[in-house]
Simulated assay, not measured.
Amino acid sequence: MGHILHDWDLAQKKVLLGKTFDALPKGGAVVVYDAIIDDDRRENTFGLMMSLNMLIETAGGFDYTGEDCQAWMREVGFSKTRVEPLVGPDSMVIGLK
C-alpha cells in the first residue's frame, strides 16, 4: 500500500488493513509506505506537512507515525510488525500475518 492509507480517516484506515489481513494467507505480509511521521513528531517535516495537506484536501485523511500504523495492524490481527526507513521522507511498516 504505497501512499494509500494517508488518504483515509482512522476508521477507514483500519477497515483497509483488516481487509488486507483477511485476504492474506497465513505467513503473508503487507507493506505500507508513506511519508511516515517519526514517533516524537519532531523530525519528518515533510510527513508533518503532508499530513496537513491531507487534512485540507480530503474529508479525513492524515499521515501517521510508525507506531500508530503498527498499533492498527496489531488491532486487526497482524502478529509481528516493524518500521523500516526508506530513502527520503518515506518509511515502510511491515505487518506479518
Rank of each mutant, 00 (worst) to 15 (best):
residue 79 S to N: 05
residue 12 Q to C: 10
residue 12 Q to H: 13
residue 1 M to S: 13
residue 11 A to R: 11
residue 37 I to M: 05
residue 38 D to Y: 07
residue 67 E to S: 13
residue 71 A to F: 13
residue 3 H to Q: 15
residue 35 A to H: 07
residue 71 A to C: 11
residue 79 S to E: 10
residue 56 I to P: 00
residue 68 D to H: 06
residue 86 L to T: 13
residue 70 Q to A: 14
residue 74 R to A: 13
residue 28 G to S: 02
residue 60 G to Y: 03
residue 89 P to V: 14
residue 51 S to K: 04
residue 82 R to W: 14
residue 39 D to I: 04
residue 94 I to N: 06
residue 17 L to V: 00
residue 39 D to E: 11
residue 94 I to M: 09
residue 33 Y to N: 12
residue 71 A to S: 15
residue 93 V to L: 11
residue 62 F to P: 01
residue 28 G to W: 00
residue 68 D to I: 01
residue 75 E to C: 08
residue 36 I to G: 06
residue 7 D to N: 13
residue 35 A to Q: 10
residue 34 D to N: 08
residue 54 M to C: 08
residue 41 R to M: 08
residue 5 L to K: 12
residue 38 D to T: 08
residue 57 E to F: 06
residue 56 I to Y: 00
residue 43 E to Y: 12
residue 13 K to S: 08
residue 21 F to C: 00
residue 96 L to C: 12
residue 96 L to E: 10
residue 87 V to I: 14
residue 55 L to I: 14
residue 44 N to A: 05
residue 12 Q to Y: 12
residue 54 M to V: 11
residue 45 T to W: 06
residue 56 I to S: 01
residue 19 K to T: 03
residue 48 L to N: 01
residue 44 N to M: 02
residue 20 T to A: 13
residue 48 L to R: 13
residue 80 K to G: 09
residue 50 M to T: 09
residue 25 P to F: 06
residue 47 G to K: 00
residue 6 H to E: 14
residue 74 R to C: 11
residue 58 T to H: 07
residue 26 K to F: 01
residue 36 I to C: 01
residue 45 T to V: 15
residue 60 G to P: 02
residue 92 M to F: 07
residue 64 Y to A: 04
residue 29 A to Q: 08
residue 9 D to W: 06
residue 46 F to Y: 08
residue 89 P to Y: 09
residue 52 L to S: 11
residue 19 K to W: 05
residue 26 K to I: 04
residue 77 G to F: 00
residue 27 G to K: 01
residue 36 I to P: 04
residue 54 M to I: 10
residue 52 L to H: 08
residue 38 D to N: 09
residue 91 S to K: 12
residue 61 G to I: 07
residue 82 R to C: 09
residue 72 W to K: 02
residue 33 Y to E: 09
residue 52 L to E: 13
residue 36 I to K: 03
residue 53 N to M: 08
residue 14 K to V: 06
residue 45 T to I: 12
residue 11 A to Q: 01
residue 1 M to A: 14
residue 21 F to S: 03
residue 82 R to G: 07
residue 46 F to S: 06
residue 89 P to F: 12
residue 23 A to P: 03
residue 79 S to M: 10
residue 92 M to L: 15
residue 67 E to M: 07
residue 4 I to W: 14
residue 89 P to A: 12
residue 80 K to P: 03
residue 19 K to M: 02
residue 34 D to F: 02
residue 69 C to V: 15
residue 36 I to A: 01
residue 87 V to E: 15
residue 90 D to N: 15
residue 18 G to D: 03
residue 57 E to D: 02
residue 44 N to H: 03
residue 63 D to A: 01
residue 32 V to W: 03
residue 57 E to K: 11
residue 46 F to T: 05
residue 93 V to F: 11
residue 84 E to S: 12
residue 75 E to I: 00
residue 9 D to T: 05
residue 26 K to A: 09
residue 36 I to H: 10
residue 5 L to G: 14
residue 2 G to M: 15
residue 90 D to Q: 15
residue 49 M to E: 12
residue 75 E to H: 10
residue 26 K to Y: 03
residue 94 I to Y: 09
residue 32 V to N: 03
residue 45 T to D: 14
residue 30 V to N: 00
residue 14 K to F: 04
residue 69 C to S: 11
residue 58 T to R: 12
residue 18 G to Q: 11
residue 40 D to R: 14
residue 20 T to D: 02
residue 51 S to I: 02
residue 91 S to A: 15
residue 73 M to P: 05
residue 64 Y to C: 02
residue 72 W to R: 07
residue 61 G to K: 03
residue 46 F to H: 07
residue 27 G to N: 01
residue 35 A to R: 01
residue 4 I to C: 14
